[in-house]
Each structure stands twice: as structure tokens, then as C-alpha cells.
Amino acid sequence: MILKIAHITLTMRDGGGGLESLIVNMARSMDPELYSVTVGCLDHGGSLLNHIHGMNYDSFVTGRRPGIDWKLIFKLARIFTKRKFQIVHSHNQTAHFYAGIAAKLARVPVIVITEHSRHNTELLWRRKLEKRLLYGITDKWVVVSKELAEQSMQEDGLGKSKLQVIRNGVEFTHYNNGQHMDVQQREQIKKQLDLPENSQIIIMVARLHPIKNHTLFLDTFAIINDKLPDVHVLFVGDGECRGALIQQSKKLNLENKIHFLGFQENVAELLGISDVFVLCSKTEGLPVSLLEACAAQVPVVITRPSNKAGLIKNKLNGIEVSDNPDDLADGLATILTNPEDAAEMALKSSKQVKKEFSLARMTREYENVYMDLLTEKGFSANISSGESA
């Protein structure tokens, strides 16, 4: 039989979020003769669902109400029962609060969560308690880095038995074009974006959300702009902070240097014209956008809270700095004014990511989790034949 999987998230809006793109890439890389994928959005749908529908997969949107929407749990339970999912896979804790409990009520055989980042779990006792309770009804609690696994055990009190690290992965072929882009192609893309021909480009690929800390970057860029006036910035992604960030850029007299591009399908091309990728989030797990930048061989400057997975080793395969404007400005200036050293670091990060962070490896590890858990629950090892114990 074909296994029915429900991936549950809050939204699939086109805000540039790595989690949403990861769900699309997972669905694309799974064997359609073995798996049928449905994506459930608790808050909003979004244009990324078009990719799901283009693969002949299904979706649903529930429309969560403000506050704790207890009715949503029962609504999801009815959906899970009616559609007869064998696997419910939530993404991050808020989605899992609803989908995990609903899946338990609906007696879904396998319940999985991927915790992509902590989102300040350590600051809220309620979130810690909630996490421990959810852990009890979950078959496998996946985290995207060893560091997150250690924090879950040491700070949140989770047991080791159900925890598993599965690092994110990307499809490298999408990010090779930038490395081989000739001067004419770069100039053409810059012209389309109204960027000066000889400008240097800083790119940040992240949804416009407070946790991504674009405000820190704008304060940083005000420092850089005084020293390196030919630098421009691409903000790729969208979100609730767009208006406030535009106003901040105007107050800093940077509106002609900051380019708000919204969601873009051609991230690989934009990385290809960029001189440095920056990430300065308040917290991260293992950002997909970081892996994409490394795969595209773009030099990276990252703040410590964004580098919790430890992928970037300072001055070896990128620059790691503390999260304040002066240090971040120094790190960016180091890359922009030392192109040979920057290229050497970018090459090292690219080789590492291509060796360790493939989409195929990630998908295979998730499929192994699904199959192992289904076998434990009494399904035959030869699940594709439709036989069960």
C-alpha cells in the first residue's frame, strides 16, 4: 500500500522560510509509489502549496483562532481519521501541540515532530512543560543538530530514547549555477534589480519576522555604508515586519541601498551575484538558507545565536561574530575587502555542505524513521506490498 503522510505546519506562505521550503523538497524527493504526501497548514496556506499540488499531492488549511484553539485539536483529529494517515509529522512545537494531540486521539500509528529551532523555549516555563508532555505522546522527536539534542535533554528534560538528530539537507544542483555564472549574466541580473554594475552585494534570505533580527542588520549596515558606499543589500523573503523595516531603512537613510525583494523562486541566481551571505537571527537550529548559501559557494558571516549548530568555524569556512552592530560590521567588512580569503573560506564551506548535507541523505533518514516506527507498531517490513501484521 501507499503510505499516507501528513506534514503539519503553521503556514506555507511565500515568506522565504526554510522550514516551508524543506517540506516541499522532502515531498519532491520521496518516492510517489511508496508515499502520498498531504501538507496541513494550521494558520494560512500560501503559494508554496502550489508546488505540493504540482506533484499531485493534497493540502488543507484549518485557520487557527487566536489564543489556544482547543476546537482545532478535535477538527484535526477528524481530518486524520477520515483521511486514514499512517504518519503525522509536525514541524516545530506549536504545530505539534495541535497535531500531536489530535494524532493521538485519532490513533494515528506514527507521530513524529521535527524541532527546527527552539524559539526561546528556555525563556518560557510553560513551553518546557508543554514540550515534556508532548514528548510523552510522540514516537520520535527529531532535532536538526546535536546541539539542539543536548539542549532538549539538559535544559528541557527530554529523555534520550525518542530523540534523533537528522540534519537538514539541500539539493545541490539548484545552487551550482551561481558558481558558473559569467560576468555578463551577473550584470544582466543586477540590471534587472536596478543594482549598480560594480556594486558589492550582501544577501539575507529569511522571512521578515522579529526572530530573524533584520533590525540588527540595518543598524549594522548603517556603519558599513559609511565605509563601503558601493555595497547594496538584498532582503529575500517577506513577513510581518516588512513595513517596520522599510521605515527603519528610511530613518537610517538607507532606502536606496536596501532592496526588499519578497519571496523569490530564483534564490540560486541571487546567491550567484552576491558577495556575502549574512544571518543574524536571535536563535536558529540549522538554517536551510545557510546550507543553500554554502552550497552556492557564497562567503558567510553569521552571528553566534544563528550558528548554534556550529556549521561555521570562525575564519576557517566563514566568519562568526557576536550579535552587536560593530562586530557584525567588522565581519562583513572583512569579507568584502578580502575577496581572496573570502573565496577560500566559501570553498571550504561548500565542500563540507556537499559532503554532509544532501537532500537525498536527509530524506533517506526520515524514511528510515517512518519505516522503523511502523514496523514497531506491527506493520510488515514489506509495507509497500500492503501486508500488515
Score class of each variant (00 low, 15 high):
residue 72 L to T: 09
residue 331 G to C: 01
residue 295 A to F: 09
residue 145 S to I: 12
residue 174 H to V: 06
residue 376 E to D: 13
residue 16 G to Y: 12
residue 262 G to M: 03
residue 289 S to A: 14
residue 74 F to R: 01
residue 26 M to C: 07
residue 174 H to K: 14
residue 130 E to A: 14
residue 264 Q to L: 01
residue 320 E to K: 12
residue 358 S to I: 12
residue 196 P to E: 13
residue 312 I to T: 10
residue 371 M to A: 13
residue 276 V to Y: 02
residue 104 K to M: 07
residue 362 M to V: 00
residue 235 F to T: 03
residue 251 K to H: 06
residue 300 V to N: 05
residue 10 L to K: 14
residue 69 D to M: 06
residue 163 L to G: 07
residue 331 G to P: 09
residue 32 P to Q: 01
residue 73 I to T: 12
residue 246 I to G: 02
residue 106 A to V: 10
residue 363 T to H: 07
residue 74 F to H: 11
residue 280 C to T: 12
residue 37 V to H: 11
residue 344 E to Q: 15
residue 140 K to P: 01
residue 65 R to K: 15
residue 140 K to D: 10
residue 76 L to H: 03
residue 357 F to W: 08
residue 86 Q to T: 06
residue 363 T to M: 02
residue 208 L to G: 10
residue 8 I to D: 10
residue 364 R to Q: 14
residue 11 T to E: 13
residue 275 D to G: 11
residue 286 L to K: 00
residue 280 C to I: 11
residue 308 K to Q: 15
residue 120 N to C: 04
residue 27 A to H: 11
residue 179 Q to V: 15
residue 300 V to A: 07
residue 307 N to W: 11
residue 248 Q to R: 15
residue 150 E to F: 05
residue 118 R to C: 04
residue 273 I to C: 10
residue 89 H to P: 08
residue 294 C to V: 02
residue 96 H to M: 05
residue 157 G to F: 08
residue 242 R to S: 06
residue 72 L to N: 05
residue 367 E to K: 12
residue 330 D to L: 14
residue 57 Y to D: 07
residue 380 S to H: 06
residue 91 H to K: 00
residue 333 A to F: 00
residue 88 V to M: 11
residue 46 G to W: 09
residue 280 C to Y: 04
residue 187 E to F: 05
residue 138 T to M: 15
residue 377 K to F: 10
residue 139 D to W: 11
residue 356 E to D: 15
residue 375 T to D: 02
residue 83 R to T: 01
residue 120 N to K: 08
residue 4 K to I: 02
residue 158 L to E: 05
residue 299 P to S: 00
residue 16 G to W: 10
residue 79 I to S: 01
residue 382 N to G: 09
residue 378 G to N: 03
residue 70 W to K: 12
residue 123 L to E: 11
residue 125 W to E: 10
residue 247 Q to S: 11
residue 163 L to K: 08
residue 149 A to E: 15
